[in-house]
């Protein structure tokens, strides 16, 4: 089904109703930056559980999607770094959380491959290390590469700066990070923004994510972390 041309603007509570238990979600962000804090809080309030979480890092145990892990909502994490979140480490050690660690550049390329219709990507990163375990190593013109397979999600939670009603997005500062790639690689794309403008208000030269990728727009809330980013 085609997405709506004029994107619905919903409350975070309403927007996350499209996430079911046991589904796979992507959450944008790098450390504190570019996390859709308001959407993640709504997922916690809605008691959605048994999720697979794809994210660059699992933030801190009381910050953003780090809280999803601390609250036991996640059964599997695919990420490049989990060292800042004590809950991720503790639950993994107690075997209550499955963890797939992927080098950061490979992780974002896997997401990009998922969104761009590629069957995988070949990267030299991690050849000869633990990152190659369980993966195919392919030699091309005498050089070894790891075949990294595409990643997609049922729902992506994205943080952008401004949107227009078509869902066209611009980003701000270092909040961009994984967000544009994730916006290409999920069935439903929900975006948290500072402002929603009339169609035609954003300069097409500056739009990074075209609105055809976006399903739902949500205004950012006023929690501490949401307001400071």
């Amino acid at each position: 089904m085609a997405k709506k041309i004029i994107k619905p603007v919903m409350s975070a509570e309403q927007a996350v109703k499209s996430i079911e238990d046991e589904s796979t979600i992507m959450v944008g962000g790098f450390n504190y930056g570019g996390i859709p804090y308001t959407l993640v809080d709504a997922v916690i309030d809605a008691n959605i559980k048994e999720l697979t979480l794809i994210c660059n890092d699992t933030a801190y145990e009381d910050v953003g999607h780090g809280k999803l892990i601390k609250n036991g909502r996640i059964k599997k994490v695919i990420a490049s770094h989990v060292g800042l979140n004590k809950a991720t480490q503790a639950l993994f050690n107690e075997k209550k959380l499955e963890l797939e660690l992927v080098p950061q550049g490979s992780l974002v390329e896997r997401i990009r491959a998922g969104g761009y219709g590629l069957g995988g990507i070949l990267t030299p990163t991690g050849v000869g290390t633990a990152a190659e375990e369980g993966k195919r190593v392919i030699e091309v013109e005498g050089k070894k590469y790891i075949l990294e397979l595409p990643l997609r999600a049922d729902v992506a939670l994205i943080r952008a700066y401004k949107a227009d009603r078509y869902g066209n997005l611009v980003y701000y500062g270092t909040n961009r990070n994984f967000n544009p790639a994730m916006a290409t690689a999920a069935g439903i794309v929900i975006v948290e923004v500072d402002a929603i403008l009339e169609v035609g208000s954003l300069d097409p030269n500056r739009i990074v994510t075209p609105g055809i990728l976006v399903d739902i727009l949500v205004f950012k809330g006023d929690s501490y972390y949401a307001s400071r980013t």
């Binding site: 490049s80 770094h81 060292g83 080098p103 030299p124 990152a131």
Partner: peptide, 15 residues
């Protein structure tokens, strides 16, 4: 010890 993850280090040393 607790596993932190490799983050971007493997890409940096490779490229």
């Amino acid at each position: 010890k607790l596993v932190p993850g490799m983050g971007g280090a493997m890409d940096l040393v490779t490229g």
